[in-house]
């Protein structure tokens, strides 16, 4: 079995190349820079292009341009850079352009720090840029998924003509784990709408402007229908030891790894605890969570934020279960012990 021990950030680039991505435009930022380093090294080797753009804004606009041209294309950054990219992400959503953006989350707001954090959830899942749009947001919790979900991101981006964000964090990005590489994708689909400097594509126009309100409204309706389809088909999640659980832990990204260990230890202590882990943050796996919520007494949402995904959990489960929140932030990763002591134990006494 072919495996390689590599950093999550590097797994992203290899997954992208196997998915047919040949264009990377980026700007250095810790803790995402290894993605640019790997892309600078590998893209030219596979006939692709790497440009270190003059800014985060230019990088996302280069993604916009290469996407218009029909290429599989990506960029990567962390919170401060993603804030700058939000303009471009909104334009991509409006113009229905596929592209992949990696956000390796770090502590914030502002410059914050370079340690792991999940404070960009709202920015990515609830918008970030202006206007009525969604991005598909995928949350890996291992180096393997940094590779696999990046590759999936390209497929989803092309399928729905929409930007896809892989929402990772400094921990998963900097960690090394064995990665098994997926089969290389066959050549990416032909995109008849692309603008390619050819006779066949000369009549094509990529734009996000429509001055007539009724026509812009119709465009947004079209987007809504597309988003409905995404919600219908693309929610992904994972559960761990939820059978017979009366208490459910909910977390994504590296937090879900901590919670998995907490579940094991809690069960050794006789607690009936399970784990629900959203893999797609948008679309949020509502139905699957709702079904579980009806079977448990209590839900604990744990995030490395001051409480962002917890809003979606509360909206989803309504009054079916009591939802508590436990958050660490500023770059602090919660430990298994504190989940046991501060989250699970108090409800058991």
């Amino acid at each position: 079995m072919a495996r390689q021990l590599i950093k999550g950030n590097e797994a992203v680039v290899k997954g992208a190349i196997l998915a047919g991505c040949r264009y990377f435009f980026g700007y250095p930022i810790t803790p995402a820079s290894e993605i640019a380093h790997a892309a600078a090294l590998y893209m030219p080797e596979v006939g692709g292009t790497f440009i270190q753009a003059e800014s985060e804004i230019a990088a996302i606009q280069m993604v916009y341009g290469a996407a218009c041209a029909g290429a599989r294309v990506m960029t990567a950054s962390s919170g401060p850079g993603i804030s700058l990219k939000c303009e471009g992400i909104s334009y991509m959503a409006g113009a229905e352009l596929p592209g992949v953006i990696i956000d390796v989350m770090r502590g914030g707001p502002g410059l914050g720090n370079i340690a792991p954090d999940q404070g960009d959830y709202n920015q990515i899942v609830k918008g970030g840029g202006h206007g009525n749009y969604h991005v598909i947001a995928l949350a890996p919790n291992s180096c393997q998924e940094m590779c696999d979900l990046t590759a999936l991101a390209f497929d989803l981006a092309d399928k729905y003509r929409n930007p896809v964000v892989v929402l990772s964090d400094a921990f998963i990005g900097q960690m090394m784990e064995p990665v098994e590489f997926p089969e290389a994708r066959p050549a990416p689909p032909e995109k008849p709408w692309r603008v390619g400097g050819t006779r066949e594509t000369r009549n094509n126009l990529v734009t996000s402007i429509e001055m007539v309100p009724e026509e812009q409204e119709e465009h947004v309706r079209h987007l809504i229908r597309k988003y409905d389809e995404v919600e219908e088909n693309e929610t992904r999640h994972e559960t761990y030891k939820v059978d017979g659980a009366d208490t459910l832990l909910v977390g994504y990204g590296v937090v879900s790894r901590v919670l998995q260990s907490a579940v094991d230890q809690a069960r050794e202590q006789g607690m009936n605890v399970g784990l629900f882990r959203p893999i797609t943050l948008w679309p949020f796996p509502k139905e699957e969570l709702r079904a579980l919520a009806r079977k448990v007494n209590r839900i604990h949402v744990v995030e490395m934020s001051f409480g962002q995904m917890v809003d979606d959990v509360r909206l989803t489960v309504g009054s079916d279960a009591k939802v508590d929140f436990y958050g660490r932030y500023g770059g602090v990763v919660p430990s298994v012990e504190e989940i046991l002591d501060n989250v699970l134990a108090p409800t058991e006494v």
Partner: peptide, 27 residues
């Protein structure tokens, strides 16, 4: 009557850069 791309304010050179890198034969 060309292939047309509408872009964000000020960003045309960045978009043009990427289009050209993908399609060197395009003008």
């Amino acid at each position: 009557d060309f292939g047309n791309i509408q872009v964000a304010h000020g960003r045309a050179p960045a978009v043009a850069t990427a289009v050209k890198r993908v399609h060197p034969h395009a003008i």
